[in-house]
Structures are given as structure tokens and as C-alpha cells.
């Protein structure tokens, strides 16, 4: 009995020693594989789809109940939504003529001012599959990967055209996108209609903050619109980002508020890091 106890204790110590030996390996890895962490991300691209696939199989009854409940909820709101859409459609049709005039005037002015607007080389529509918002981190997964042509550094925009995030890691059938609210997100932006530049820094909250203005005398105010500046070479100039809600907070499109996005590829000069 006593011998059994001793051998069990030795076995426990051996297991602990093996686990302890892994710790310095992790630390060395974190120091040497930055900034891309290729080994970890590569491993995740194998393990994650397998776990997702098995998880889908095990949790299908829960998903089926969830889908049925959301279907019933959607059906119940369909009538009121239809009425609202009719009103919005008639409003939109009224505005269409004014918009057509504004578009032709804009094209004319763009030609006169010799403004070159960058057109995306490729656009891919994707669904948001997981929104991983926790602590000060905010990333989300989309259901398109390098099989569909998604690459790291591509811009992810909402259907209204506002920037939601940047693709940070790509696997075969999915991609991880760093949203603008992530604390690691730091994007050079421009105040629309001016030549004032700044940096939009995510902080984990729903409203990232803007600072480090190129013009020290510039007074930021509520209501100003922000667009990408194209300074860093990853994103082109002119993608709408959001609107300032105070002297530093910016209202952006949150991944939790949308279910579909468009992934855009531009002719980037630099690689996203």
C-alpha cells in the first residue's frame, strides 16, 4: 500500500516536472517568434477547425434550438419591420434624385481636383462566426480564409462601407480580424475634409480614442467624421471610420452589431503587423 502511495507521488512529481519544463519553452518562444507568432498561429489553424468541427457535431441540438427561437422571434417582428421598410424605401426614393445630382457633381469635382480614389482589387463577403470580446481584447472570426482569397492586412468593412477591422491571421476556411476597439489596434486616420491627421487607438471599450494630432492647434469636437489616412501604407486613403462623440471618443461600427462584412484587398505598400 505504502509502495503504491510512493510510486503515485513519484508519478505526480514527474508529470509536474514535465509541465514545469514547458514553461521556459513558452517564454523563449514568446521572445523569439514575434511579431507574427507563426508557430502558434499555424498550430491553431490545425487544432481550431478540428475542435470547431467536433463542437459543431456535439452542440447541434443547442444550435438547432437557438436557430428555431431566433426564427420565431424574427417572424414576430416581420410585420412591423415591413412597415418600417416601406417608409424608409419611400424616403430613399425621394432622396435618390438629389443623390444622383450630388454624385455627378462629385465626379466632376474629383476630375477637376485630380483626386485619385483607390478602388479595391478584390472584395469578399463573409459572415462573422465568433465575436471574441473580452478584457481589453476584441477580435472576431469570419467564415472565409485563404481558400476564398483572404489575406492578412486586408480591410474589413461593414455593408455601409465603414471600417470594422483588419485581418490579422488567416487559415484555410476562417480568418481572425482585429477590430478597431482592440487595445492592440492603432490606425493612422484623417479628419474628413481637412489635412489634420491623428491616431485612432483601441482601448477595449466600444469607443476607441483619437490623439496625436498632426496640427497641435487643432481642437477636436463632437460630430467630426474620420477616414483612413493611408499614411502607414496598409489601408488606403478615404475609408470611413466613424464619428467623434466627444473631444477624443470615436463612435465606430462594432462587430457585435453586424453579422456580415466585406473584406477588401487594396494594393498595399506595406505588410500589416
Amino acid at each position: 500500500m505504502n509502495q503504491k502511495k510512493i510510486s503515485s507521488r513519484v508519478y505526480s512529481i514527474v508529470k509536474s516536472a514535465i509541465t514545469a519544463a514547458v514553461l521556459p519553452v513558452f517564454l523563449i518562444y514568446i521572445m523569439i517568434d514575434k511579431p507574427d507568432y507563426k508557430i502558434m498561429n499555424g498550430l491553431a489553424k490545425i487544432v481550431l477547425p478540428v475542435a470547431q468541427w467536433v463542437g459543431d457535431g456535439v452542440t447541434w441540438p443547442i444550435h438547432a434550438i437557438g436557430r428555431a427561437a431566433s426564427g420565431i422571434r424574427e417572424l414576430s417582428t416581420l410585420r412591423s419591420e415591413n412597415e418600417e421598410l416601406k417608409v424608409r424605401l419611400s424616403d430613399a426614393l425621394r432622396n435618390k434624385t438629389e443623390c444622383d445630382i450630388a454624385i455627378s457633381e462629385n465626379q466632376h469635382l474629383t476630375q477637376q481636383l485630380d483626386i485619385v480614389k483607390e478602388i479595391p482589387q478584390k472584395s469578399i463577403v463573409a459572415n462573422i462566426t465568433y465575436n471574441n470580446e473580452a478584457f481589453s481584447h476584441s477580435t472576431f472570426f469570419i467564415n472565409k480564409g485563404y481558400d476564398s482569397g483572404v489575406e492578412s492586412g486586408m480591410a474589413v468593412v461593414s455593408f455601409e462601407g465603414s471600417l470594422v477591422g483588419i485581418v490579422s491571421d488567416v487559415a484555410e476556411n476562417f480568418a481572425k480580424v482585429r477590430s478597431l476597439t482592440d487595445s492592440k489596434s492603432n490606425i493612422p486616420v484623417r479628419i474628413a475634409g481637412s489635412e489634420v491627421y491623428g491616431f485612432l487607438q483601441g482601448n477595449g471599450s466600444n469607443t476607441p480614442t483619437i490623439g496625436f494630432f498632426s496640427d497641435p492647434e487643432f481642437q477636436p469636437t463632437r460630430g467630426l467624421k474620420l477616414i483612413t489616412s493611408g499614411i502607414r501604407g496598409v489601408l488606403p486613403n478615404g475609408i470611413p471610420i466613424g464619428e467623434m462623440t466627444s473631444h477624443e471618443d470615436v463612435n465606430v461600427v462594432l462587430p457585435s452589431k453586424i453579422s456580415d462584412v466585406i473584406v477588401l484587398k487594396f494594393n498595399s505598400k506595406d505588410k500589416y503587423k
Partner: peptide, 10 residues
């Protein structure tokens, strides 16, 4: 896998 979703690097 939690780390990968969290983006917390191990």
C-alpha cells in the same frame, strides 16, 4: 484554443 480566441498569446 481559449488563448487563440482571446488573442492572449499562450
Amino acid at each position: 484554443l481559449i488563448d487563440y480566441k482571446f488573442d492572449t498569446l499562450l
